[in-house]
Design a binder for these strands. Structure first.
Lengths: 230, 230
DNA sequence: TCCCCGTCAATACAGTGTATCGGCATGAGA
DNA sequence: TCTCATGCCGATACACTGTATTGACGGGGA
């Protein structure tokens, strides 16, 4: 083992900050889902030891919080939309598109309160869109209702998407013919309404379905806003 | 080492079935959350080796599917409610109460398609409640919208509940005074609407808030059902 | 009676989050 | 400029995870 064989000692540790850590984690998650995010792998991407990360976060969960906040920045619309309805609509659609870019977001959505700076900014944007249109409590209820809807809808959409990817079949094809289990269950006759839905329902575009439900909910909110406070 | 020292050989392996496995898993999850469910611990509760479980499930995820289906049985109403609105309302509230009994349900809700027998029965119950009141596609959209709402709302409620438990403070108390971070953020003046909401909003009962949003969504569905098919 | 096969437990492995510890480089004080 | 202390970083360690593999042992069929 001559000097020439031995590599130079490592340079000073590469400088780190939360931003770098979070974007490494997001890259990992984009490639392999949330479960592909391990502190060791994140650290490895940054040429650092795993323990180094504990200077920036105190547990893995906090890394997820940071990731969430980072996509909240993507979600935040750049300009303030014209009216409240457009504001909520844009927010919902931007969240959905973010989830399609980062599917792991579906696993995190609604899982913990989003209190990071960008999460608060999103909350502010939505609340301010409705500000003054009704009493505060109605406004909060409206925001919560709309966001409960799109959180749930996005989660389901991604769940279906994953299932389709795993089976290689669209949901309806799978239900209709290819799944022996499903065929058998429907054949029992115990699920007539479901059977009808599976066979007679039109296969609709996920985005359209999302948008339709969203408009319904927005209609409901509109009805409430146009009502004098109780 | 005489005979007397040596214990008798173990009796024949305790009989196992999915039901036993699932209820052990649920018990574990009820006590310590989803992350407390490990195949080793489930097996230990049943006096079995971990590998034994692989005769009944082929991966841990499937155990979660079985757990989900088991609570779907709790959710299924015992009798068919009078009208569609009551049916959807009951379903939503029963799901919520199941999630309060089994908080880990919030982590699973909407995460994967529920195709177990009880999941299908729930789907059947909701679809049949709306059967004939509109064309199939509208009906499906209605079911999906309502369930997206309550899925999201339940997840948020449980998330808040956990956060409150972790900090020992109600959400509003925490936001208002006790969290140095939150106080600082609100003090920046960048979140006026949010600040107003935090300080002027009434602290409402979670169930009431859930119910209110649900009624709004049901109103929206009612409006669509009363409309002739496009 | 013997053998085969299916079932179950033990072992093994690669990977996880995180606590602890030891050393080294850096910056302050003399 | 030398010395010492301090704080950071990596290595090591630990308890635990899901799951593949292996090997023994028992009951059922020939």
């Amino acid at each position: 083992m001559t000097v020439w064989d031995r590599p130079e000692p490592p340079t000073r540790p590469v400088p780190l900050d939360r931003e770098r850590i979070v974007s490494a984690a997001i890259a990992l998650a984009d490639e392999g889902g949330l479960e592909a995010v391990s502190l060791r792998k994140v650290a490895a991407r940054l040429d650092a030891g795993p323990m180094r990360l504990y200077g920036y976060i105190s547990a893995k969960e906090e890394l997820f919080d940071l990731m969430m906040d980072e996509v909240n920045a993507e979600i935040l619309p750049e300009e303030r939309p014209a009216d409240w309805r457009e504001a909520l609509r844009v927010l919902a659609h931007r969240t959905r598109r973010a989830a399609l870019r980062h599917e792991w977001l579906a696993d995190l959505l609604g899982g913990r309160p989003s209190l990071g700076p960008n999460g608060l900014a999103v909350a502010e944007a939505t609340l301010s869109a409705l500000d003054g249109l009704a009493d505060i409590d109605t406004v909060m209820r409206a925001v919560e209702t709309v966001s409960a809807y799109f959180t749930g809808a996005i989660r389901r959409e991604i769940a279906n998407l994953r299932a389709e990817r795993a089976t290689g079949l669209s949901k309806r094809d799978w239900q209709r013919a290819s799944g022996p289990y499903m065929t058998r269950m429907l054949a029992t006759g115990r699920f007539p309404a479901l059977t009808k839905a599976v066979y007679d329902g039109t296969e609709v575009d996920a985005e359209e379905s999302f948008a339709t439900g969203l408009e319904w909910v927005l209609d409901a909110v509109a009805a409430q806003l146009g009502r004098p406070p109780a």
